[in-house]
Simulated scan of single mutants.
Amino acid sequence: MERKAIIEVFGQLRKSLNAVIANDEWPGYTCGLTEEEFLSFKKMINKEFQLNPWFTKENCLKALGGIVHLLDNESLTTFSENYQFTSKPKLVALIMAGNIPFVGFHDLLCTLLTGNKALCKLSSSDSRVPLRIIQWLIQWNPELKEYIQVSIGPIKNYDAVIATGSNNSIAQFETYFGHIPHLFRKNRTSIALLDGTETDDELKALSSDCFDFFGMGCRNASKLYLPTGFNLNRIFENFLDQQHLINHHKYGNNYDYNRTIFLMNQIPFLDNNVFMLKEDEGIHAPLSVIYYEFYTNQEEILAKIEGMKDELQAIVGHGFIPFGKAQAPDISDFADGVDTCSWLNSLS
């Protein structure tokens, strides 16, 4: 199979997903889907929350928009030219996480663009939408049937592994997959570094960086570094668009639990009945909580951040990722800063 054909089929996926995001009714065959396929997928998106309450319709559509962002034909072509397309494909097992919808898509994309084959082990928390998308890809280009497999049971006969999970699962990954070429990803989080010149619009965009997908992604900013004297009321005032979060029962349960823990242990915090701000040197804040820390010297705080880069996925702020873009990575924004395509090329 040629790389050009792979890029073309992903271009078709971009067109179809764009149609799903933009239309409630079937827009016609130009979207690449029959009316039945289109409406069935829309129905699936609308009902995902019944299987996984975190996967609301809004979050599913947001995740699909992130996939569309990756699949510009020209960008895909330019990006893929930086890597070899192997003539001896390896079967790469992709152990996908399930914290946000189809979070493993980038790994699938990189695997195919380098000419390798993907053995997808979907998360039990996120299986229906990824499976449907994979079915479309194979339907549009039947050659992909030899390049994409989905494993229902235990995976076997693979040549390499890309596995994403929690810190606790890394030990299991090492046990099962440590003897073959592997790329393991554990828990990371993201931070925002503010310098005090941020506009209200930038702070409103920061609220998305913190709370898109309920704050469950590794690219969500869970810690704010603020210049001494920063008015914390500006955070609460500009995060008002997130008030809807508290109406979600699972998010609300996390909020109630963490608030109760803080109160029982007499831990100081600030609260707006939607989320809490807690002054803390840590960077891994629990759901519904944002940690913050004041700094006086920017050079010192930059040095501190550099020292914790192995724990960070993204940094938001002036000179870093623009506010509001943490959950909209470009195709070259590799997880954990490891070039997935270069690693895949090394397998040949």
Rank of each mutant, 00 (worst) to 15 (best):
S332A: 12
E35H: 06
E37M: 02
N73W: 09
D201Y: 06
Y295V: 07
F49N: 11
P227Q: 11
V161I: 10
K278Q: 14
N297E: 14
N73Y: 13
K43P: 02
D209H: 09
Y255E: 04
P27A: 07
N258V: 09
K121E: 02
I133D: 05
L240M: 14
M96H: 05
C218Y: 00
D126I: 09
C218E: 01
A314Q: 06
F320P: 08
K145E: 11
I45G: 07
D336I: 01
N23Y: 08
W140L: 08
I138M: 11
E8H: 13
T77C: 12
I315F: 13
I134P: 00
G317Q: 03
D200M: 08
G178M: 01
G115Q: 11
I305P: 03
Q327R: 10
W343E: 03
E311N: 15
N265S: 09
N258H: 15
H284W: 13
I191W: 09
C60S: 13
T111Q: 07
F275S: 05
K325A: 13
E174N: 14
A326L: 04
A63E: 12
M276H: 03
N82V: 05
F211M: 10
S80G: 00
Q243A: 11
E36C: 11
T77L: 12
E48W: 11
H244E: 05
F105N: 09
Y295S: 05
I235S: 00
N23H: 15
L347N: 07
N116M: 03
F214N: 01
V161K: 02
V161E: 02
I67G: 01
I301N: 02
F102S: 03
F55E: 05
T164H: 04
V338A: 14
V20H: 04
D212M: 07
A160Y: 04
E36M: 13
T86P: 04
L71P: 00
Y158H: 13
F239E: 01
K304W: 08
Y147D: 09
V103C: 07
L131F: 11
L183M: 12
N99S: 14
C218H: 01
E174R: 14
E306R: 06
G65S: 14
F334N: 06
F334A: 08
N59M: 10
M308P: 05
N99W: 13
K250N: 02
N59L: 03
I95N: 01
T199M: 03
T199N: 03
L277A: 11
E58S: 14
S75A: 13
N82H: 14
F294L: 06
L224M: 11
T114K: 10
T78G: 05
Q172G: 15
D195E: 10
K223L: 10
G317W: 03
P329G: 07
P53M: 08
P154G: 00
Y255P: 01
P27N: 07
F213C: 06
L61M: 10
M276V: 02
W136T: 00
S75M: 12
L122W: 06
Q298T: 15
I321Y: 02
